[in-house]
Computed example of a mutant assay.
Amino acid sequence: MTTGERLRIAYSPCPNDTFVFDALAHGRVPDAPALDVTFADIDVTNGMAERGEYDVLKVSYAVLPYVLDTYALLPCGGALGRGCGPLVLTRDGGPTDLTGRTVAVPSEKSTAYLLFRLWAADTVPGGVGEIVVMPFHEIMPAVRDGKVDAGLVIHEARFTYQNYGLRKLADLGEHWESTTGLPIPLGAIIAKRDLGAPTLTALAAALRTSVQLAWENPEASRPYVREHAQEMDPSVADQHIGLYVNEFTADLGPDGYAAVRGLLTRAAAEGLLPPLGPQALTFP
């Protein structure tokens, strides 16, 4: 990377990402690489990663086995946590057993979907029925209106699903944590390996500093969060940040890496993902 060159980065407009990247995106981290930011939902950034289109991306951990030849997993900046997993929802009076049932999901290449399939393997011995992929914002209305039997939801839907007359059939995070004792790996920050070790190391350090600055002065990030929160209620945005920005955002650490490897290994054993190489998560 040459002096003055900007890194092309894409991450979501969700409050946790704008909170984390605010200081870095606005030049408040000394000596940090400059960024050229694009906003895109994670299903879009997953595709960007598979095509190798950007220097740095926020992606689902579920896409890592497909892209780690080109990209390195950064040890910070992503979303892992406890008590923040995806939910399986049905309408009031809906089914309590998903055997043969139709389930709406936002993506089949997502951590949420992997957690759903691992949960179903443990708890739905007859197997679920048809999987219907639909835009995230359409899932709760579709469950409410009886178009599908159940829906897999993430993020702020944890706080709003009761407004649709829905009930929680399963908390996939609780299932994951009770069976592994590990946090839930949700979103990862990856950067192209060919940027070179010095740039990757500098980027990780700058990202850690950006997280720390956001924690030290959360008001500084508030305009950036609000600008991109898609009319989300400010209190919901604050809850969102509180759930998804935590010690694993600052540093994956041993438990974070164990969670990532555990999820991807279990998913590979179920035939949901290709196996992960022994050095695939090495940084840089």
Rank of each mutant, 00 (worst) to 15 (best):
T99N: 01
L152V: 08
T249I: 05
F136W: 13
K58E: 12
W176K: 12
D69I: 03
T160Q: 08
L272C: 03
L80M: 07
Q279M: 15
Y161H: 11
Y161A: 08
T3H: 14
G181V: 11
V143L: 09
L263D: 07
D194T: 13
A10S: 11
A206C: 11
M48V: 02
L115R: 02
Q239H: 12
G94A: 13
I189L: 02
V143N: 08
T3C: 05
A229M: 15
A32H: 00
N16S: 15
A280M: 04
P183S: 09
D122T: 09
A121R: 12
V37N: 00
G77C: 01
T160N: 07
L281H: 12
V148A: 04
M48C: 03
D31R: 00
G181D: 11
T70H: 02
L273T: 10
L272G: 07
A237L: 08
L276Q: 12
L73K: 04
E247S: 10
Y61M: 02
Y61V: 04
P284C: 08
A268C: 10
E177R: 02
G127K: 09
L57R: 03
R226P: 14
E5N: 14
F248H: 15
K168R: 10
L115W: 01
G83Q: 13
T45E: 03
L172K: 05
A40D: 04
L276A: 07
T265L: 05
V245Y: 03
R51V: 04
D149N: 00
L276T: 08
Y11I: 03
Y61S: 15
L74D: 05
H240Q: 08
Y164V: 04
V148F: 02
A112G: 08
